[in-house]
Design a protein around this nucleic acid. Structure first.
Lengths: 101, 101
DNA sequence: GTCTTAGTAAGACAATTGTAAAACTGTTGT
DNA sequence: ACAACAGTTTTACAATTGTCTTACTAAGAC
């Protein structure tokens, strides 16, 4: 049975590109690391940790979600972000596969 | 004995960032794939395969070399490019490591 | 030598993008 | 209802960057 959320193990066609773009900004990677370091992480925490406005944090998270690297769930007024490690692994796998042979 | 070429298995501090940037352009990834597909590949071949000028190819290759993803050796007037898979693997490894815990 | 070919370097330009400020939506607490 | 808080959206701007053109260097062929 296929999962409704695409990418248990395979990336959507454009997703590879989106992920590469998402990872190209050091701040966004740092954000990803911060999200990963806590099991579940609201934005307000991140806003305090980084010297950027909350609007910028929001924008980066949107990009990470768009790439599928982060899952964001609203709980009341808070946004719970978690890293989708399966997607990250699928990305690294495809990257290595593409440079094979 | 340490290899003189840094990165048999570890990335230099700024290298992680350079690689991420290098991989963020789809054309550059395609270029990387093209280089990987042949064992050893001169630029002129690439210039024919892609609808961009040779100046652009040259620029992209410079970026790939700067990131350490490609090794370029001159042989006469030709430039032999090879993908450094060890570096690519080190990158994916570090990426996954950074989003651990 | 001259001509051609392979690649590089410099400059310019358009497109993308990281950022912030301000205004907005929605939720929680009083 | 009101105020405080969490996050989003819009708009604008500066910085980065992918691309080309042109000019350049260097190597091979004649």
């Amino acid at each position: 049975m296929k999962s409704d959320h695409p990418t248990g193990e395979e990336l959507r066609p454009e997703q590879f590109e989106l992920i590469a773009k998402a990872l190209s900004d050091p701040r966004r990677v740092a954000l990803l690391e911060a999200i990963a370091s806590e099991k579940c992480c609201e934005c307000s925490t991140l806003t305090q940790q980084f010297p950027v406005s909350k609007a910028t944090i929001s924008h980066h998270i949107k990009e990470l979600v768009r790439a599928g690297l982060v899952k964001a769930e609203r709980h009341g007024q808070y946004l719970n972000c978690t890293v989708r490690r399966d997607v990250l692994e699928a990305y690294t796998k495809e990257l290595l596969l593409r440079t094979d042979s």
